[in-house]
């Protein structure tokens, strides 16, 4: 069959590996599998690490605003500042006026609040760094979640214990889908949505099924729910 090929090729065709290397080839198969697996695992780890997903990673802000102080300490409701969370896709970020409702009268000389006073004097918005940031091709809507009994803490974690805001979950697609497939395990009564201390009861499956029926909660897993 190989007629016409030169002697060099014929040399190449000769046996390269001696029979003594046979165990090595078997080991190398396992090694390659392990390496690929390990590499994959490492990539997965990196991908779900705070560095990539931004979870559990406090952010620098122009003013070191503390939810712990304002929510747990002063008992302020989320909606005092995030005013549109019940009625629009966007939760709403507090205007400088909202901070000044109190800080024009108390802690008026605190150096920490200088950027707030600057913003009030000049009319230039405070620029908060976004902590949660879904990719541009994902559609998200707060109002539907809030009105169907999904609590803030379900997605944002213990906000009332955060001296600085961080993202408590990866916000990856698997994370969204985990709940969209089984909402009954994660819903709560509507009047508990803003309750940061809420704990799911022992009989969550039972209560959840009741709420799912009462609030007519669907299992939305079609791609176009979130990619539209």
């Amino acid at each position: 069959m190989y007629t016409g090929l030169g002697p060099r090729v014929r040399w190449l065709m000769s046996q390269i590996f001696s029979p003594s290397t046979n165990p090595l080839s078997k080991i190398s198969i396992v090694a390659v599998a392990l390496l690929a697996g390990g590499g994959g695992l490492a990539l997965w780890e990196v991908n779900s690490s705070p560095f990539v997903s931004r979870a559990n990673y406090p952010f620098e802000q122009p003013v070191p605003f503390s939810h712990k102080h304002h929510v747990a300490g002063l008992g302020l409701d989320c909606r005092y500042c995030h005013t549109t969370v019940e009625r629009s896709a966007f939760a709403g970020m507090p205007a400088t006026e909202t901070c000044m409702s109190c800080h024009s009268m108390i802690w008026t000389n605190a150096p920490m609040l200088e950027p707030v006073r600057q913003s009030w004097a000049t009319g230039k918005s405070l620029e908060w760094n976004r902590v949660h940031d879904l990719p541009g091709f994902v559609y998200f809507n707060h109002s539907i979640h809030v009105n169907k009994g999904v609590g803030c803490s379900e997605c944002h974690g213990p906000v009332d214990q955060m001296p600085l805001m961080y993202q408590a979950n990866t916000l990856y697609m698997t994370w969204c889908l985990e709940c969209h497939r089984n909402p009954e395990m994660r819903v709560r009564p509507r009047d508990k949505v803003f309750d940061m201390k809420y704990k799911h009861p022992e009989n969550q499956a039972e209560l959840g099924a009741k709420l799912v029926a009462e609030y007519k909660i669907q299992k939305l897993t079609d791609c176009y729910t979130c990619h539209r």
Binding site: N47, M93, P135, G136, F137
Partner: peptide, 18 residues
């Protein structure tokens, strides 16, 4: 894979963007 997050930012404005 390294640039994944950057490619997620599309050139459009969202509410309250600068």
């Amino acid at each position: 894979i390294g640039c994944r997050q950057d490619m997620h930012d599309q050139p459009r404005y969202r509410l309250n963007s600068a």
